[in-house]
Computed example of a mutant assay.
Amino acid sequence: MGLSDIAAGLTITTPQRERGVATVDATDAPLAERLAPYADDLPCPVAVAATLLDAYGAGTSVGAAAAAAGIAPTTGAKALHVLGVGGVNPLSPLAREIVADWLDGGLTRSEAVTLSGASDTEFALGAYCATHPPAEGAAAVVAAAREPDSRSLGRRDREALAEACETPDALR
């Protein structure tokens, strides 16, 4: 008996809701306002970066988040990198070493691209990530935008959460 046999005759009587990824911003100021100190470091306007972060934080890909913000995917990846969001550098650790060798003058660009195995776009984004460190303090602003507001939790809720969250040593 297959799934189609099991599901035969089933009908949905209640519409389902798309729930997405739940996020709670525990701060009072709008995200764009909190990103304002990093405006000079960003490759796009602050309001666009805030839209990008909201879309990316909702669980979309970098490309889809960039499209929602109205910018190119590479610009979106650069902005996320500058804001301290991890995982946007497309290069492997070995390819990152090759980019570093190229930046130090040990390789020509064509040699480095060939050795890295990356496309020209991936190589350029990896080079950007290598030459533009994340803005100091930006990752904390981004993280704060995704933390639940502990003030809105009651004592019983906090205790229940504390019981559910064990220390890593207790998991052994």
Rank of each mutant, 00 (worst) to 15 (best):
R156L: 14
A50N: 07
V113H: 05
A143H: 14
A47T: 09
Y128K: 01
R19Q: 10
D54R: 15
L125Q: 00
A140P: 01
N89G: 05
A138C: 06
E166I: 07
A145D: 06
G87V: 02
D40W: 06
V21Y: 14
G84V: 00
T74N: 11
T121G: 09
A50S: 11
V24D: 14
R172T: 14
Q16V: 14
D28N: 06
P168S: 04
E97R: 13
D41S: 05
A100H: 06
N89L: 09
P134W: 03
A100R: 09
P148W: 12
A49D: 12
R34S: 03
R96Y: 01
E122L: 09
A127I: 04
V62A: 13
D41F: 09
G106V: 05
T60Q: 04
S61P: 03
A144G: 05
P134E: 02
P43Y: 08
A112T: 05
L83D: 00
G106W: 04
R158Q: 10
W102M: 06
I12M: 15
D104A: 15
A160I: 13
D25T: 09
V113A: 01
V82W: 10
P90G: 12
V82A: 07
R155I: 14
I12P: 06
A130C: 14
A55I: 08
E159V: 11
P30V: 08
A170P: 01
A145C: 10
G105R: 12
S92N: 11
A164V: 13
S110A: 15
N89W: 02
V85K: 01
A170V: 11
A55R: 10
V62D: 00
G87M: 01
A138T: 04
A55S: 15
T27R: 12
A162L: 11
H132K: 03
R109Q: 15
R109G: 11
L94W: 05
L53G: 00
V62S: 05
I98T: 13
S152G: 00
D120K: 09
E166C: 15
T167M: 10
G86L: 10
A50I: 14
T167A: 11
A144C: 07
V88G: 04
A22P: 12
T74G: 02
V48P: 05
P134G: 07
P148Y: 06
R156Y: 08
A160Y: 03
L161G: 11
G2V: 11
D40Q: 08
P15C: 10
P168N: 14
A130Q: 01
A8T: 13
D149Q: 03
A130G: 13
L125D: 02
D101L: 06
N89V: 00
A140T: 13
A68V: 09
A79P: 02
D28V: 03
T114F: 12
R19L: 14
V88W: 02
C129M: 03
P30T: 07
L83C: 04
T60R: 15
A138K: 00
R109E: 14
A145L: 02
D5K: 14
E18N: 12
A36M: 02
C44D: 07
D54K: 12
A164C: 04
V21I: 11
D120G: 13
A100E: 07
A7H: 10
A100C: 13
R109N: 06
